[in-house]
């Protein structure tokens, strides 16, 4: 039984660096960044975001081997910004997109809560069949964000 532990797919080992930057010696303003313990979920999203940015000349990612839990992303910029910096910008942009989506989901869910609350007690209870925890968690979200959206 020499199969590796499956949590090694997503947990960094002791002292393992999450990111390794290999600067390209032959192409100007280019770098290959190896991101460990991540997969297509992050790689493809980053690639797409990078390609939408005007400073980017090239962005591509690959998972070199399906059994090795890392991907590499290759970035070339037009020289106004380093590949590392633009990658960070891309991350920040994605985070803000996700945050705005989060508040929109919260608002939509709170509307749906109100709707089902009006239609009857059974429907209201049906929305939270899994006990107080889900209700608490849901409550915290709606309290934390909702009024800001309006």
């Amino acid at each position: 039984m020499n199969a590796p532990n499956r949590f090694e797919l997503f947990v960094l080992e002791d002292g393992e660096k999450p990111i390794e930057i290999i600067e390209d010696t032959k192409i100007p303003n280019a770098a290959t960044i190896k991101i460990v313990k991540q997969d297509h979920t992050l790689g493809n999203m980053l690639r797409a975001q990078l390609l939408s940015m005007p400073q980017i000349l090239f962005a591509g990612y690959k998972v070199p081997h399906p059994l090795e839990p890392y991907f590499v992303i290759k970035i070339q910029t037009d020289g106004t910004i380093t590949p590392q910096a633009i990658l960070e910008q891309a991350c920040n942009k994605l985070i803000s997109t996700l945050a705005s989506l989060e508040s929109k989901f919260n608002r939509e869910f709170s509307f749906k809560d109100i709707e089902s609350g009006n239609t009857g007690a059974t429907a209201g209870a049906g929305n939270d069949p899994y006990g107080t925890g889900a209700a608490n968690a849901g409550g915290a979200w709606s309290q934390g964000r909702d009024y800001l959206d309006f």
């Binding site: 660096k17 999450p18 990111i19 991101i35 991540q38 979920t41 992050l42 999203m45 980053l46 590392q84 990658l87 960070e88 991350c91 920040n92 994605l94 985070i95 996700l98 945050a99 989506l101 989060e102 989901f105 919260n106 869910f109 929305n127 939270d128 069949p129 899994y130 889900a134 968690a137 849901g138 979200w141």
Partner: peptide, 28 residues
């Protein structure tokens, strides 16, 4: 499957993606 409600799944999903990106920034 009932282990989490649909709302919690969606919201946790968004949070999890943000956490992944935040870790990447931290690693950079």
């Amino acid at each position: 499957d009932g282990s989490l409600g649909p709302q919690e799944v969606v919201m946790r999903g968004l949070a999890e993606l943000q956490a992944k990106l935040a870790n990447l920034i931290l690693g950079l």
